[in-house]
Design a protein around this nucleic acid. Structure first.
Lengths: 249, 249
DNA sequence: GCTGGATAGAATGTGCACATTTGGTACGGG
DNA sequence: CCCGTACCAAATGTGCACATTCTATCCAGC
Protein backbone atom coordinates (compact mmCIF):
# COMPACT_ATOMS: atom_id res chain seq x y z
CA UNK A 1 0.00 0.00 0.00
CA UNK A 2 1.07 3.57 -0.54
CA UNK A 3 2.40 5.27 2.52
CA UNK A 4 3.79 8.73 2.91
CA UNK A 5 6.53 8.64 5.52
CA UNK A 6 7.38 12.28 5.04
CA UNK A 7 4.19 13.96 6.12
CA UNK A 8 1.53 12.51 8.34
CA UNK A 9 -1.30 14.95 8.92
CA UNK A 10 -2.45 15.52 12.45
CA UNK A 11 -5.84 14.03 11.68
CA UNK A 12 -5.24 10.42 12.52
CA UNK A 13 -8.65 9.88 13.96
CA UNK A 14 -9.80 8.11 10.81
CA UNK A 15 -12.36 10.76 10.08
CA UNK A 16 -11.40 12.62 6.98
CA UNK A 17 -8.74 10.27 5.76
CA UNK A 18 -8.90 10.14 1.98
CA UNK A 19 -6.79 6.98 1.91
CA UNK A 20 -9.32 5.01 3.91
CA UNK A 21 -11.50 4.52 0.86
CA UNK A 22 -8.72 2.99 -1.12
CA UNK A 23 -7.59 0.84 1.78
CA UNK A 24 -11.03 -0.64 2.32
CA UNK A 25 -11.50 -1.11 -1.40
CA UNK A 26 -8.15 -2.82 -1.78
CA UNK A 27 -8.81 -5.14 1.15
CA UNK A 28 -12.23 -6.19 -0.06
CA UNK A 29 -11.11 -6.43 -3.67
CA UNK A 30 -8.19 -8.66 -2.77
CA UNK A 31 -10.32 -10.81 -0.49
CA UNK A 32 -12.85 -11.39 -3.26
CA UNK A 33 -10.19 -12.01 -5.87
CA UNK A 34 -8.28 -14.49 -3.77
CA UNK A 35 -11.43 -16.34 -2.92
CA UNK A 36 -11.14 -15.76 0.80
CA UNK A 37 -14.85 -14.97 0.93
CA UNK A 38 -17.05 -17.87 -0.04
CA UNK A 39 -19.31 -17.37 -3.04
CA UNK A 40 -22.79 -16.45 -1.95
CA UNK A 41 -21.69 -14.81 1.27
CA UNK A 42 -23.69 -11.77 2.19
CA UNK A 43 -21.61 -8.72 3.00
CA UNK A 44 -23.54 -6.71 5.57
CA UNK A 45 -22.61 -3.09 5.98
CA UNK A 46 -22.60 -2.72 9.75
CA UNK A 47 -20.27 -5.64 10.59
CA UNK A 48 -17.85 -4.53 7.89
CA UNK A 49 -17.86 -1.00 9.22
CA UNK A 50 -17.04 -2.24 12.69
CA UNK A 51 -14.38 -4.63 11.42
CA UNK A 52 -12.60 -1.95 9.42
CA UNK A 53 -13.18 0.69 12.06
CA UNK A 54 -14.67 3.15 9.59
CA UNK A 55 -18.10 4.63 9.15
CA UNK A 56 -20.88 2.69 7.49
CA UNK A 57 -21.13 5.27 4.72
CA UNK A 58 -17.58 4.57 3.70
CA UNK A 59 -18.24 0.84 3.48
CA UNK A 60 -21.41 1.63 1.57
CA UNK A 61 -19.57 3.65 -1.04
CA UNK A 62 -16.94 0.96 -1.57
CA UNK A 63 -19.58 -1.77 -1.79
CA UNK A 64 -21.50 0.14 -4.42
CA UNK A 65 -18.32 0.67 -6.37
CA UNK A 66 -17.63 -3.05 -6.31
CA UNK A 67 -21.18 -3.67 -7.47
CA UNK A 68 -20.72 -1.25 -10.35
CA UNK A 69 -17.58 -3.17 -11.30
CA UNK A 70 -19.55 -6.43 -11.27
CA UNK A 71 -17.38 -7.81 -8.51
CA UNK A 72 -20.39 -8.04 -6.16
CA UNK A 73 -24.06 -8.33 -6.88
CA UNK A 74 -26.73 -6.32 -5.10
CA UNK A 75 -30.37 -6.99 -4.36
CA UNK A 76 -32.34 -3.86 -3.47
CA UNK A 77 -32.94 -3.52 0.24
CA UNK A 78 -31.27 -6.87 0.79
CA UNK A 79 -27.60 -6.03 0.70
CA UNK A 80 -24.78 -7.26 -1.48
CA UNK A 81 -23.42 -10.77 -1.98
CA UNK A 82 -20.38 -12.40 -3.48
CA UNK A 83 -21.60 -13.70 -6.83
CA UNK A 84 -21.68 -17.43 -7.33
CA UNK A 85 -20.65 -18.04 -10.92
CA UNK A 86 -21.99 -21.08 -12.68
CA UNK A 87 -19.78 -23.39 -14.66
CA UNK A 88 -21.17 -21.80 -17.81
CA UNK A 89 -20.12 -18.38 -16.55
CA UNK A 90 -16.59 -19.62 -16.11
CA UNK A 91 -16.54 -21.16 -19.56
CA UNK A 92 -17.81 -17.85 -20.94
CA UNK A 93 -14.92 -16.03 -19.31
CA UNK A 94 -12.36 -18.35 -20.82
CA UNK A 95 -14.06 -18.30 -24.19
CA UNK A 96 -14.04 -14.51 -24.14
CA UNK A 97 -10.37 -14.56 -23.25
CA UNK A 98 -9.65 -16.98 -26.05
CA UNK A 99 -11.61 -14.98 -28.62
CA UNK A 100 -9.99 -11.74 -27.57
CA UNK A 101 -6.48 -13.18 -27.63
CA UNK A 102 -7.05 -14.59 -31.08
CA UNK A 103 -7.78 -11.12 -32.34
CA UNK A 104 -4.87 -9.65 -30.43
CA UNK A 105 -2.41 -12.20 -31.84
CA UNK A 106 -3.55 -11.48 -35.38
CA UNK A 107 -3.02 -7.78 -34.85
CA UNK A 108 0.22 -8.27 -33.01
CA UNK A 109 1.83 -10.29 -35.79
CA UNK A 110 1.83 -7.20 -37.97
CA UNK A 111 3.77 -5.07 -35.57
CA UNK A 112 6.07 -7.61 -33.98
CA UNK A 113 9.64 -6.37 -33.86
CA UNK A 114 12.83 -7.82 -32.43
CA UNK A 115 12.65 -5.80 -29.27
CA UNK A 116 9.17 -7.02 -28.40
CA UNK A 117 10.08 -10.56 -29.36
CA UNK A 118 13.02 -10.41 -27.02
CA UNK A 119 10.84 -9.21 -24.19
CA UNK A 120 8.34 -11.98 -24.71
CA UNK A 121 11.10 -14.58 -24.79
CA UNK A 122 12.54 -13.13 -21.62
CA UNK A 123 9.16 -13.39 -19.98
CA UNK A 124 8.80 -17.03 -20.97
CA UNK A 125 12.29 -17.56 -19.56
CA UNK A 126 11.16 -16.15 -16.25
CA UNK A 127 8.20 -18.49 -16.31
CA UNK A 128 10.44 -21.46 -16.98
CA UNK A 129 12.72 -20.49 -14.13
CA UNK A 130 9.79 -20.14 -11.74
CA UNK A 131 8.46 -23.51 -12.84
CA UNK A 132 11.84 -25.15 -12.32
CA UNK A 133 12.13 -23.64 -8.88
CA UNK A 134 8.64 -24.91 -8.02
CA UNK A 135 7.65 -21.35 -7.13
CA UNK A 136 3.93 -21.80 -7.52
CA UNK A 137 2.94 -18.25 -6.58
CA UNK A 138 5.36 -16.76 -9.09
CA UNK A 139 4.18 -19.20 -11.75
CA UNK A 140 0.56 -18.20 -11.36
CA UNK A 141 1.44 -14.53 -11.39
CA UNK A 142 3.75 -14.75 -14.39
CA UNK A 143 1.30 -16.92 -16.27
CA UNK A 144 -1.38 -14.26 -16.07
CA UNK A 145 1.17 -11.56 -16.79
CA UNK A 146 2.08 -13.31 -20.04
CA UNK A 147 -1.36 -12.85 -21.52
CA UNK A 148 -1.44 -9.31 -20.24
CA UNK A 149 1.92 -8.65 -21.82
CA UNK A 150 0.67 -9.75 -25.21
CA UNK A 151 -2.27 -7.38 -25.01
CA UNK A 152 -0.19 -4.51 -23.68
CA UNK A 153 2.12 -4.89 -26.64
CA UNK A 154 -0.54 -3.37 -28.87
CA UNK A 155 -0.45 -0.23 -26.77
CA UNK A 156 -4.23 -0.11 -26.66
CA UNK A 157 -5.53 0.92 -23.26
CA UNK A 158 -9.02 -0.37 -23.99
CA UNK A 159 -7.82 -3.84 -24.93
CA UNK A 160 -5.47 -3.99 -21.97
CA UNK A 161 -8.26 -3.01 -19.59
CA UNK A 162 -10.64 -5.58 -21.02
CA UNK A 163 -8.07 -8.31 -20.73
CA UNK A 164 -7.10 -7.26 -17.24
CA UNK A 165 -10.74 -7.47 -16.25
CA UNK A 166 -11.08 -10.93 -17.72
CA UNK A 167 -7.97 -12.05 -15.88
CA UNK A 168 -9.22 -10.87 -12.52
CA UNK A 169 -12.52 -12.60 -13.17
CA UNK A 170 -10.71 -15.78 -14.03
CA UNK A 171 -8.90 -15.47 -10.74
CA UNK A 172 -12.19 -15.45 -8.90
CA UNK A 173 -13.46 -18.40 -10.83
CA UNK A 174 -10.30 -20.36 -10.34
CA UNK A 175 -10.71 -20.23 -6.60
CA UNK A 176 -14.12 -21.81 -6.90
CA UNK A 177 -13.82 -24.25 -9.75
CA UNK A 178 -10.20 -25.13 -10.04
CA UNK A 179 -7.63 -26.47 -7.71
CA UNK A 180 -4.81 -24.02 -7.21
CA UNK A 181 -2.22 -26.60 -8.18
CA UNK A 182 -3.59 -26.66 -11.74
CA UNK A 183 -4.39 -23.04 -12.13
CA UNK A 184 -1.33 -21.80 -13.99
CA UNK A 185 -0.81 -22.39 -17.63
CA UNK A 186 1.81 -24.65 -19.05
CA UNK A 187 5.04 -22.84 -19.71
CA UNK A 188 5.95 -24.68 -22.88
CA UNK A 189 2.61 -23.65 -24.38
CA UNK A 190 3.45 -19.99 -23.87
CA UNK A 191 6.85 -20.53 -25.41
CA UNK A 192 5.32 -22.24 -28.42
CA UNK A 193 3.01 -19.28 -29.01
CA UNK A 194 5.94 -16.88 -28.92
CA UNK A 195 7.95 -18.96 -31.35
CA UNK A 196 5.03 -19.24 -33.73
CA UNK A 197 4.77 -15.47 -33.60
CA UNK A 198 8.48 -15.21 -34.30
CA UNK A 199 7.95 -17.22 -37.49
CA UNK A 200 5.06 -14.91 -38.37
CA UNK A 201 2.83 -17.96 -38.37
CA UNK A 202 -0.33 -16.27 -37.17
CA UNK A 203 -2.59 -19.25 -37.71
CA UNK A 204 -0.32 -21.48 -35.68
CA UNK A 205 -0.10 -18.95 -32.86
CA UNK A 206 -3.85 -18.57 -32.69
CA UNK A 207 -4.35 -22.31 -32.81
CA UNK A 208 -1.86 -22.82 -29.99
CA UNK A 209 -3.53 -20.11 -27.96
CA UNK A 210 -6.93 -21.67 -28.58
CA UNK A 211 -5.77 -25.11 -27.52
CA UNK A 212 -4.15 -23.54 -24.52
CA UNK A 213 -7.38 -22.00 -23.31
CA UNK A 214 -9.41 -25.07 -24.17
CA UNK A 215 -7.07 -27.09 -22.02
CA UNK A 216 -7.58 -24.79 -19.06
CA UNK A 217 -11.29 -24.85 -19.72
CA UNK A 218 -11.38 -28.63 -19.76
CA UNK A 219 -9.73 -28.80 -16.37
CA UNK A 220 -12.57 -26.91 -14.76
CA UNK A 221 -14.58 -28.75 -12.17
CA UNK A 222 -16.56 -27.77 -9.14
CA UNK A 223 -14.53 -27.77 -6.00
CA UNK A 224 -16.30 -29.61 -3.19
CA UNK A 225 -16.09 -27.24 -0.28
CA UNK A 226 -15.58 -23.51 -0.54
CA UNK A 227 -14.23 -22.02 2.66
CA UNK A 228 -16.78 -20.47 4.97
CA UNK A 229 -15.33 -17.82 7.23
CA UNK A 230 -16.69 -14.90 9.15
CA UNK A 231 -16.10 -11.62 7.42
CA UNK A 232 -15.83 -9.80 10.71
CA UNK A 233 -12.93 -12.05 11.69
CA UNK A 234 -11.36 -11.83 8.25
CA UNK A 235 -10.72 -8.13 8.24
CA UNK A 236 -8.76 -6.91 11.19
CA UNK A 237 -8.26 -3.24 11.83
CA UNK A 238 -6.64 -1.82 8.75
CA UNK A 239 -3.52 0.33 8.77
CA UNK A 240 -1.90 0.35 12.19
CA UNK A 241 -1.69 4.12 11.93
CA UNK A 242 -5.43 4.36 11.54
CA UNK A 243 -8.38 3.39 13.69
CA UNK A 244 -7.75 1.08 16.58
CA UNK A 245 -10.96 0.54 18.48
CA UNK A 246 -13.53 -1.24 16.38
CA UNK A 247 -14.68 -3.77 18.99
CA UNK A 248 -17.77 -2.64 20.75
CA UNK A 249 -20.10 -5.61 21.14
CA UNK B 1 -45.69 -10.86 -0.84
CA UNK B 2 -47.24 -7.48 -0.17
CA UNK B 3 -49.97 -7.69 2.41
CA UNK B 4 -51.85 -4.72 1.04
CA UNK B 5 -52.80 -5.26 -2.58
CA UNK B 6 -55.43 -2.55 -2.47
CA UNK B 7 -53.15 0.20 -1.36
CA UNK B 8 -50.65 1.59 -3.78
CA UNK B 9 -48.43 3.97 -1.86
CA UNK B 10 -48.67 7.47 -3.16
CA UNK B 11 -45.32 8.11 -4.74
CA UNK B 12 -44.27 11.42 -3.37
CA UNK B 13 -42.33 13.20 -6.01
CA UNK B 14 -38.63 13.05 -5.29
CA UNK B 15 -38.75 11.52 -1.86
CA UNK B 16 -38.80 7.78 -1.53
CA UNK B 17 -39.22 6.94 -5.16
CA UNK B 18 -37.00 4.01 -6.09
CA UNK B 19 -37.44 4.79 -9.76
CA UNK B 20 -35.89 8.21 -9.41
CA UNK B 21 -32.40 6.74 -9.42
CA UNK B 22 -32.94 4.97 -12.67
CA UNK B 23 -34.64 7.98 -14.23
CA UNK B 24 -31.78 10.30 -13.38
CA UNK B 25 -29.24 7.73 -14.51
CA UNK B 26 -31.03 7.12 -17.79
CA UNK B 27 -31.33 10.82 -18.51
CA UNK B 28 -27.69 11.55 -17.80
CA UNK B 29 -26.50 8.43 -19.57
CA UNK B 30 -28.47 9.25 -22.69
CA UNK B 31 -27.34 12.86 -22.63
CA UNK B 32 -23.71 11.83 -22.46
CA UNK B 33 -24.09 9.15 -25.11
CA UNK B 34 -25.87 11.39 -27.55
CA UNK B 35 -23.29 14.08 -27.08
CA UNK B 36 -25.75 16.65 -25.79
CA UNK B 37 -23.25 17.60 -23.12
CA UNK B 38 -20.06 19.02 -24.51
CA UNK B 39 -16.86 17.14 -23.68
CA UNK B 40 -15.08 18.77 -20.79
CA UNK B 41 -18.23 20.15 -19.23
CA UNK B 42 -18.21 20.06 -15.47
CA UNK B 43 -21.29 18.46 -13.94
CA UNK B 44 -21.88 20.18 -10.62
CA UNK B 45 -24.04 18.38 -8.11
CA UNK B 46 -26.20 21.19 -6.82
CA UNK B 47 -27.46 22.52 -10.17
CA UNK B 48 -28.24 18.98 -11.32
CA UNK B 49 -30.14 18.28 -8.13
CA UNK B 50 -32.22 21.40 -8.62
CA UNK B 51 -32.78 20.67 -12.30
CA UNK B 52 -33.98 17.12 -11.66
CA UNK B 53 -35.85 18.12 -8.54
CA UNK B 54 -34.20 15.44 -6.43
CA UNK B 55 -31.81 15.54 -3.51
CA UNK B 56 -28.13 16.13 -4.02
CA UNK B 57 -27.30 12.71 -2.57
CA UNK B 58 -29.23 11.03 -5.32
CA UNK B 59 -27.35 12.94 -7.98
CA UNK B 60 -24.14 12.10 -6.16
CA UNK B 61 -24.82 8.39 -6.26
CA UNK B 62 -25.66 8.42 -9.96
CA UNK B 63 -22.59 10.50 -10.77
CA UNK B 64 -20.33 8.11 -8.91
CA UNK B 65 -21.90 5.20 -10.73
CA UNK B 66 -21.20 6.86 -14.05
CA UNK B 67 -17.64 7.45 -12.95
CA UNK B 68 -17.27 3.79 -12.04
CA UNK B 69 -18.50 2.92 -15.52
CA UNK B 70 -15.90 5.25 -17.02
CA UNK B 71 -18.60 7.39 -18.57
CA UNK B 72 -17.49 10.38 -16.51
CA UNK B 73 -14.17 11.23 -14.95
CA UNK B 74 -13.76 12.55 -11.43
CA UNK B 75 -11.13 14.73 -9.83
CA UNK B 76 -11.14 14.55 -6.02
CA UNK B 77 -12.82 17.56 -4.46
CA UNK B 78 -13.26 19.07 -7.87
CA UNK B 79 -16.32 17.35 -9.17
CA UNK B 80 -16.91 15.23 -12.26
CA UNK B 81 -16.51 16.14 -15.92
CA UNK B 82 -17.47 14.70 -19.26
CA UNK B 83 -14.25 13.13 -20.53
CA UNK B 84 -12.65 14.66 -23.57
CA UNK B 85 -11.25 11.79 -25.61
CA UNK B 86 -8.24 12.42 -27.76
CA UNK B 87 -8.08 11.26 -31.33
CA UNK B 88 -5.82 8.43 -30.17
CA UNK B 89 -8.46 7.35 -27.67
CA UNK B 90 -11.00 7.11 -30.46
CA UNK B 91 -8.65 5.13 -32.63
CA UNK B 92 -8.03 2.81 -29.69
CA UNK B 93 -11.75 2.20 -29.36
CA UNK B 94 -12.12 1.31 -33.00
CA UNK B 95 -8.99 -0.82 -32.96
CA UNK B 96 -10.33 -2.69 -29.95
CA UNK B 97 -13.60 -3.20 -31.73
CA UNK B 98 -11.82 -4.46 -34.82
CA UNK B 99 -9.60 -6.83 -32.85
CA UNK B 100 -12.51 -8.18 -30.87
CA UNK B 101 -14.69 -8.69 -33.93
CA UNK B 102 -11.89 -10.53 -35.70
CA UNK B 103 -11.81 -13.04 -32.87
CA UNK B 104 -15.58 -13.25 -32.78
CA UNK B 105 -15.84 -13.90 -36.51
CA UNK B 106 -13.29 -16.69 -36.29
CA UNK B 107 -15.23 -18.32 -33.50
CA UNK B 108 -18.57 -17.71 -35.15
CA UNK B 109 -17.59 -19.45 -38.36
CA UNK B 110 -17.45 -22.75 -36.51
CA UNK B 111 -20.97 -22.57 -35.21
CA UNK B 112 -22.75 -20.81 -38.04
CA UNK B 113 -25.96 -22.57 -38.97
CA UNK B 114 -28.69 -21.78 -41.48
CA UNK B 115 -30.96 -20.23 -38.89
CA UNK B 116 -28.34 -17.74 -37.74
CA UNK B 117 -27.32 -17.02 -41.30
CA UNK B 118 -30.91 -16.24 -42.13
CA UNK B 119 -31.20 -13.87 -39.23
CA UNK B 120 -28.05 -12.03 -40.22
CA UNK B 121 -29.25 -11.73 -43.81
CA UNK B 122 -32.56 -10.43 -42.57
CA UNK B 123 -30.78 -7.85 -40.47
CA UNK B 124 -28.75 -6.67 -43.46
CA UNK B 125 -32.00 -6.48 -45.37
CA UNK B 126 -33.44 -4.19 -42.73
CA UNK B 127 -30.33 -2.04 -43.01
CA UNK B 128 -30.69 -1.83 -46.76
CA UNK B 129 -34.32 -0.84 -46.43
CA UNK B 130 -33.49 1.87 -43.92
CA UNK B 131 -30.75 3.13 -46.20
CA UNK B 132 -33.07 3.24 -49.17
CA UNK B 133 -35.68 5.10 -47.19
CA UNK B 134 -33.04 7.60 -46.09
CA UNK B 135 -33.96 6.88 -42.48
CA UNK B 136 -30.73 8.07 -40.94
CA UNK B 137 -31.66 7.37 -37.34
CA UNK B 138 -32.64 3.80 -38.13
CA UNK B 139 -29.49 3.33 -40.17
CA UNK B 140 -27.25 4.37 -37.32
CA UNK B 141 -29.13 2.19 -34.87
CA UNK B 142 -29.20 -0.87 -37.12
CA UNK B 143 -25.57 -0.41 -38.02
CA UNK B 144 -24.52 -0.70 -34.41
CA UNK B 145 -26.98 -3.51 -33.85
CA UNK B 146 -25.35 -5.51 -36.63
CA UNK B 147 -22.05 -5.75 -34.80
CA UNK B 148 -23.87 -6.50 -31.58
CA UNK B 149 -25.82 -9.22 -33.31
CA UNK B 150 -22.65 -10.93 -34.43
CA UNK B 151 -21.30 -10.97 -30.91
CA UNK B 152 -24.59 -12.08 -29.39
CA UNK B 153 -24.64 -15.01 -31.75
CA UNK B 154 -21.91 -16.65 -29.72
CA UNK B 155 -24.17 -16.59 -26.67
CA UNK B 156 -21.38 -15.29 -24.51
CA UNK B 157 -22.57 -12.63 -22.07
CA UNK B 158 -19.06 -11.40 -21.39
CA UNK B 159 -18.29 -10.81 -25.05
CA UNK B 160 -21.64 -9.17 -25.64
CA UNK B 161 -21.14 -6.84 -22.71
CA UNK B 162 -17.66 -5.88 -23.84
CA UNK B 163 -18.86 -5.14 -27.35
CA UNK B 164 -21.85 -3.22 -26.09
CA UNK B 165 -19.52 -1.09 -24.01
CA UNK B 166 -17.28 -0.41 -26.98
CA UNK B 167 -20.30 0.56 -29.06
CA UNK B 168 -21.57 3.06 -26.52
CA UNK B 169 -18.10 4.53 -26.28
CA UNK B 170 -17.94 4.85 -30.02
CA UNK B 171 -21.24 6.69 -29.87
CA UNK B 172 -19.73 9.24 -27.57
CA UNK B 173 -16.71 9.61 -29.77
CA UNK B 174 -18.73 9.93 -32.90
CA UNK B 175 -20.48 12.97 -31.55
CA UNK B 176 -17.18 14.68 -31.05
CA UNK B 177 -15.03 13.56 -33.92
CA UNK B 178 -17.36 12.53 -36.65
CA UNK B 179 -20.12 14.21 -38.50
CA UNK B 180 -23.41 12.45 -37.96
CA UNK B 181 -23.98 12.08 -41.65
CA UNK B 182 -21.00 9.75 -41.94
CA UNK B 183 -21.39 7.89 -38.72
CA UNK B 184 -23.14 4.76 -39.89
CA UNK B 185 -21.38 1.96 -41.62
CA UNK B 186 -21.87 1.08 -45.22
CA UNK B 187 -24.60 -1.45 -45.70
CA UNK B 188 -22.95 -3.36 -48.51
CA UNK B 189 -19.92 -3.91 -46.28
CA UNK B 190 -22.06 -5.64 -43.71
CA UNK B 191 -23.65 -7.75 -46.40
CA UNK B 192 -20.25 -8.76 -47.76
CA UNK B 193 -19.16 -9.92 -44.30
CA UNK B 194 -22.25 -12.07 -43.95
CA UNK B 195 -21.78 -13.64 -47.37
CA UNK B 196 -18.14 -14.39 -46.64
CA UNK B 197 -19.29 -16.10 -43.48
CA UNK B 198 -21.85 -18.06 -45.47
CA UNK B 199 -19.01 -19.38 -47.65
CA UNK B 200 -17.09 -20.26 -44.48
CA UNK B 201 -14.36 -17.96 -45.71
CA UNK B 202 -13.16 -16.77 -42.31
CA UNK B 203 -10.13 -14.94 -43.61
CA UNK B 204 -12.21 -12.98 -46.05
CA UNK B 205 -14.79 -12.11 -43.41
CA UNK B 206 -12.12 -10.88 -41.02
CA UNK B 207 -10.40 -8.91 -43.76
CA UNK B 208 -13.68 -7.28 -44.73
CA UNK B 209 -14.43 -6.45 -41.12
CA UNK B 210 -10.96 -5.01 -40.68
CA UNK B 211 -11.24 -2.83 -43.77
CA UNK B 212 -14.66 -1.79 -42.58
CA UNK B 213 -13.35 -0.51 -39.27
CA UNK B 214 -10.28 1.05 -40.84
CA UNK B 215 -12.56 2.95 -43.14
CA UNK B 216 -14.56 4.33 -40.23
CA UNK B 217 -11.32 5.09 -38.45
CA UNK B 218 -9.97 7.00 -41.41
CA UNK B 219 -13.03 9.22 -41.53
CA UNK B 220 -12.36 10.51 -38.06
CA UNK B 221 -11.58 14.15 -37.72
CA UNK B 222 -12.03 16.73 -35.08
CA UNK B 223 -15.29 18.55 -35.34
CA UNK B 224 -14.83 22.31 -35.12
CA UNK B 225 -17.47 23.32 -32.64
CA UNK B 226 -18.90 21.06 -29.95
CA UNK B 227 -22.22 22.33 -28.63
CA UNK B 228 -22.08 24.20 -25.36
CA UNK B 229 -25.32 24.14 -23.45
CA UNK B 230 -26.28 24.74 -19.88
CA UNK B 231 -26.90 21.51 -18.01
CA UNK B 232 -29.47 23.15 -15.78
CA UNK B 233 -31.48 24.07 -18.86
CA UNK B 234 -30.96 20.68 -20.42
CA UNK B 235 -32.69 18.61 -17.79
CA UNK B 236 -36.21 19.59 -16.93
CA UNK B 237 -37.89 18.34 -13.79
CA UNK B 238 -38.62 14.64 -14.06
CA UNK B 239 -41.57 12.70 -12.74
CA UNK B 240 -44.25 15.26 -13.46
CA UNK B 241 -44.69 15.06 -17.20
CA UNK B 242 -43.29 11.56 -17.18
CA UNK B 243 -40.51 12.33 -19.62
CA UNK B 244 -37.61 14.65 -19.94
CA UNK B 245 -37.49 16.55 -23.16
CA UNK B 246 -34.23 18.39 -23.55
CA UNK B 247 -34.20 21.84 -24.99
CA UNK B 248 -31.85 22.01 -27.87
CA UNK B 249 -30.27 25.35 -28.43
C1' DG C 1 0.54 48.71 -13.22
C1' DC C 2 1.54 44.17 -11.89
C1' DT C 3 2.16 40.40 -8.68
C1' DG C 4 1.35 37.98 -4.45
C1' DG C 5 -1.33 36.62 -0.66
C1' DA C 6 -5.43 36.51 2.03
C1' DT C 7 -10.24 36.11 2.46
C1' DA C 8 -14.97 34.98 1.28
C1' DG C 9 -17.97 32.24 -1.31
C1' DA C 10 -19.22 27.96 -3.24
C1' DA C 11 -18.83 23.18 -4.11
C1' DT C 12 -17.55 18.61 -2.63
C1' DG C 13 -17.04 15.09 1.01
C1' DT C 14 -18.59 12.92 5.37
C1' DG C 15 -20.98 11.50 9.54
C1' DC C 16 -25.33 11.13 11.80
C1' DA C 17 -30.15 10.44 12.62
C1' DC C 18 -34.28 8.88 10.78
C1' DA C 19 -37.50 6.37 7.42
C1' DT C 20 -38.53 2.21 4.99
C1' DT C 21 -38.25 -2.42 3.97
C1' DT C 22 -37.29 -7.24 5.04
C1' DG C 23 -37.19 -11.64 7.54
C1' DG C 24 -38.20 -14.11 11.50
C1' DT C 25 -41.18 -15.35 15.19
C1' DA C 26 -44.96 -15.83 17.99
C1' DC C 27 -49.78 -16.02 18.33
C1' DG C 28 -54.40 -17.21 17.01
C1' DG C 29 -57.62 -19.59 13.92
C1' DG C 30 -58.96 -23.57 11.13
C1' DC D 1 -51.16 -30.17 13.87
C1' DC D 2 -50.71 -26.86 10.14
C1' DC D 3 -51.28 -22.49 8.03
C1' DG D 4 -52.04 -17.55 7.80
C1' DT D 5 -51.34 -13.16 9.98
C1' DA D 6 -49.52 -9.56 12.73
C1' DC D 7 -45.81 -7.75 15.21
C1' DC D 8 -40.74 -6.94 16.18
C1' DA D 9 -35.93 -6.50 15.36
C1' DA D 10 -32.33 -5.74 12.12
C1' DA D 11 -30.49 -4.04 7.94
C1' DT D 12 -30.68 -0.98 4.06
C1' DG D 13 -31.77 3.51 2.05
C1' DT D 14 -32.19 8.60 2.40
C1' DG D 15 -32.11 13.44 3.76
C1' DC D 16 -29.75 16.84 6.35
C1' DA D 17 -26.25 19.44 8.62
C1' DC D 18 -21.50 20.20 9.07
C1' DA D 19 -16.44 19.93 7.84
C1' DT D 20 -13.06 20.46 4.35
C1' DT D 21 -11.22 22.00 0.09
C1' DC D 22 -11.05 24.63 -4.05
C1' DT D 23 -11.72 28.99 -6.69
C1' DA D 24 -12.36 33.65 -7.54
C1' DT D 25 -11.99 38.24 -6.13
C1' DC D 26 -9.96 42.07 -3.79
C1' DC D 27 -6.41 44.58 -1.60
C1' DA D 28 -1.86 45.62 -0.17
C1' DG D 29 2.90 45.89 -1.43
C1' DC D 30 6.57 46.38 -4.77
Amino acid sequence: MSSDPTIVPARRSGKGDPEADEAVYAALHAAILEGRIAAGTKLAETPLAEAFGVSRERIRKVLHRLVAERRLEAVPNRGVRVPQPTLDDVRAIYQAHRVLEAGVLRELAEKLDDRLLGELRMHVGQEQRAAMERDRAASVRLSGAFHLRIADALGNAQLSAMLRDLLTRSSIMVSVYESIAESFCGVQEHGAIVEALARHDVERAIALSGDHFRLVEARLQLRPQPPKVDVARLFGPIGEAGGEEPVRS
